[in-house]
Simulated assay, not measured.
Amino acid sequence: MMYVKNFIPVLFFACFTLIACKNSKKNKPENPETYTGTASVSQGPATVLTQNIFECDRGRKAPIGTSTATDGSQWTVPAEVNFTDDSFPFASDLFNPCTKVEYRSADEALAALDGTDIIEVDADGELITAYVFADNYFEMYINGVPVGKDNVPFTQFNSNILRFKVNRPFTIAMKLVDWEENSGLGSEANRGQAFHPGDGGMVAVFKDAKGDIIATTNSDWKAQTFYTAPLRDLSCASEQGSLRLSDACSTEDSNDGTSYYALHWKTPLNWQSADFDDGEWPNATEFTNNTIGVDNKPAYTNFTDVFDNSAADARFIWSTNVILDNEVLVRYTVD
C-alpha cells in the first residue's frame, strides 16, 4: 500500500515535469551551452553604435554595432572595417550609382585615371590593375599594404578598379563583408520579410602592365569565415578541421529573428601579410553568376569581357556558405 500511495504523486510530478520541459523546449531557441565549436556565441540584436556609415540614394542603411557573446567577449558587427579611416585609400570607381561615376567599359574607366590612384607597394615594382565586384564590401591588401577599399559598404551595387606597383611574387589578402541591416543578426528586410539572410560573393581579375590577366578569383584561393548569422538552431553548425560549416542551417526568411544566434571567430594577427601561414585555411568555394545574381547589375554586366573573359573566366568566391557567412578573409599569392 505504501508503494501505491507514493507512486501517484511521483507519477503526476514526472508527467508535469515532462510537459513543462517539452513546452519550454518548444518556446525557446537552442541553449547556447549546447554549442561545442570554437566560436563565441551571441544572441539577439547588437547594440548599434553607428546607424549608417554611408548615405546613398536608394541605398540601404549600413550600421555598425557591438554584440556581446555568452562568454563575455565583445564583437564588432558585421566586421571591424576601415571604411571611415582616411589613411586606408578608397579604390577608384568602375561603376558606382552612388557617385554617378558609371563607366561603360573597363577601357573607359582606365583612361580616366591620372596616376594619382597608384599605390606603391614596391617603388620599382610592375604596375598591376585589379577589377573587383564585391557583394557587399571589400578591403584589399598587397603584401600587407592597404591598396584600396570599397566605396560603398552595402548598396547600391558597385564595382571598383585598383592599381598598385609591386614585385612578384606578391600576396593578395582581402576582407569581405556581407553587410546587414539588422545589426548582429546577419539579415536585412527583403522579399516582404523583416529578417532575410542576404548573400555575399566577390569576383576579381588582376592584369599586368601589358593588359594580360595574371590572376583571377577561383577555388585556388584560401577563404576562412569569421562571422556567421543568423542561426535559429546552434546544433546546425559544425566544424571539420579548419572548416566552419553552416550548410545544415536554415536560410529561410522570417518576420521574427530577434532571438537568433551568431557565431564569431577572432581574426588572426597579421592575416594580411605575405608571410602569414594560411596553409590550414580551407580553399575558397566557387559560385556561379546566377547564384550570386548579377545578370541585372550593370556594375558587373558592363565588364563581362573582363570578369567572364573566355580565356580566363574569373569565378565568384566565398567561404562554404555564401548566405550565412558574413565576414570572410581570402588570400592568394601571385607568382
Rank of each mutant, 00 (worst) to 15 (best):
S105V: 00
S105L: 00
S105Y: 01
S105W: 02
A106G: 10
A106N: 03
A106V: 02
A106D: 01
A106T: 00
D107V: 09
D107E: 14
D107T: 11
E108R: 14
E108A: 15
E108D: 15
E108H: 11
A109I: 03
A109V: 03
L110S: 08
L110R: 12
L110A: 13
A111F: 00
A111P: 02
A111N: 13
L113Y: 07
L113A: 00
L113M: 13
L113C: 09
D114S: 12
G115K: 08
G115N: 06
G115C: 05
T116Y: 11
D117K: 08
D117E: 15
I118D: 12
I118H: 14
I118F: 12
I118P: 13
I119W: 00
I119E: 05
I119K: 11
I119P: 09
E120C: 10
V121T: 08
D122Q: 14
D122E: 10
D122R: 15
D122S: 15
D122V: 12
A123Q: 08
A123M: 05
A123D: 09
D124C: 11
D124Q: 15
D124V: 10
G125D: 02
E126I: 02
E126A: 12
E126Q: 13
E126T: 05
L127E: 12
L127Y: 02
I128E: 01
I128Y: 13
I128P: 03
I128S: 07
T129Q: 08
A130P: 07
A130R: 13
Y131P: 00
Y131D: 03
Y131V: 02
V132A: 05
V132N: 01
F133W: 09
F133Y: 08
A134L: 03
A134H: 02
D135Q: 03
D135E: 14
D135M: 05
N136F: 00
Y137V: 07
Y137Q: 06
Y137M: 04
Y137A: 04
Y137P: 03
Y137L: 04
Y137D: 05
Y137C: 01
F138A: 08
F138M: 01
E139D: 13
E139L: 11
E139C: 06
M140Q: 07
M140I: 08
Y141K: 15
I142M: 11
N143C: 00
N143E: 03
N143Y: 01
G144F: 09
G144E: 11
G144H: 07
G144I: 05
V145Q: 11
V145E: 11
V145L: 08
P146Y: 05
P146D: 04
P146T: 08
K149E: 05
K149M: 11
K149T: 04
D150S: 15
D150L: 11
D150I: 12
D150K: 14
D150P: 13
N151W: 09
V152D: 06
P153N: 13
P153C: 12
P153M: 13
F154N: 06
F154L: 12
